[in-house]
Write a protein that binds this DNA or RNA. Structure first.
Length: 268
DNA sequence: ATTGAGACCTGTCGGC
DNA sequence: TGCCGACAGGTCTCAA
């Protein structure tokens, strides 16, 4: 369940069990997720204290007392649970036993998730992380940076928002949601919101604000489950647009092989 | 360099 | 009920 708001919810959920605690045991139930675990993975984790647990886009990053960083991604279907007495269900792949006594288990049916270690020797480490765009809820993401990132892009606005180099953490739901709030068509070419004459276009101002708004709302709601009814357009094909005064109906189209939901009436 | 298509996996849901 | 295809909140790689 993983776009930025859901990953942030996971971080808040497991941080109390992990930060400041020592990893006393690591159990790997298989030898890979999307990619193989790095060499001596369990050995390099065992005995380390988790100094902090941060989020960057859709990634979770744990700083370890060894100086290494544990990088984790939930893929499409990854989840964590923290419990006092361990349980086992299908697709449990990694189990961290913390010195606090809490068991933190990573479960991922589709195994699109990722766990790796970024070493002190190669601090840039992970290519996707190194190339990642600005955090949408930080000041480094605004109309100017969004417009600049879209300049020259021939892909659609929706596809551009899914590009983690443009902005970090948006996925298929919140890309559609943000475009609806901004009143912009997902089919527009991304370059059409780019800078003109040095100043960001009004559409870039609206879109940057909309992205921040939908993400903040989702985090505040702790929207970690499949709550389609809460969405403005996502998964609402054929249903009425919720924009005030708009008589449109939500449409579903396919872009880059993925569903996009939007209102053709109020999104231009 | 950018872009689209296909690949990676398993589970669920709707239609026949 | 059972089977079968379509689809699912994400990347990554490859070829044009």
């Amino acid at each position: 369940m993983p776009e930025l708001p859901e990953v942030e919810a996971v971080r808040r959920q497991i941080a109390p069990a992990m930060v400041g605690a020592r990893i006393s045991r690591v159990t790997l139930r298989r030898d890979n997720l999307r990619t193989p675990f790095p060499p001596r993975f369990a050995d390099r984790l065992r005995g380390r204290i988790v100094r902090s647990l941060d989020r960057r886009g859709k990634y979770l990053i744990a700083e370890l007392s060894s100086g290494e960083r544990l990088v984790m991604h939930l893929g499409m279907s990854g989840s964590f649970r923290a419990e006092r007495s361990p349980t086992t269900v299908p697709h449990d792949h990694v189990v961290f036993t913390m010195s606090s006594g809490i068991i933190v288990t990573f479960n991922d049916p589709r195994r699109f998730g990722l766990m790796t270690l970024v070493t002190k020797e190669a601090p840039a480490g992970h290519a996707a992380l190194a190339a990642m765009g600005p955090e949408p809820l930080s000041d480094s993401f605004n109309a100017d940076t969004l417009a600049a990132a879209c300049a020259g892009k021939r892909v659609s606005l929706k596809v551009a928002l899914l590009d983690q180099r443009v902005v970090a953490g948006l996925g298929n739901i919140y890309a559609s949601e943000a475009l609806h709030v901004a009143g912009l068509s997902p089919r527009r070419r991304a370059s059409t919101i780019a800078t003109r004459g040095g100043a960001p276009r009004e559409s870039a101002v609206r879109l940057a604000a909309a992205i921040k708004q939908v993400l903040r709302e989702a985090i505040a709601r702790k929207e970690t489950a499949y709550r389609a009814s809460r969405f403005r357009v996502y998964d609402r094909e054929g249903e009425p647009c919720r924009t005030k005064g708009c008589k449109g109906a939500v449409r579903r189209i396919t872009q880059a092989g993925r569903s996009t939901f939007f209102c053709p009436e109020c999104q231009r």
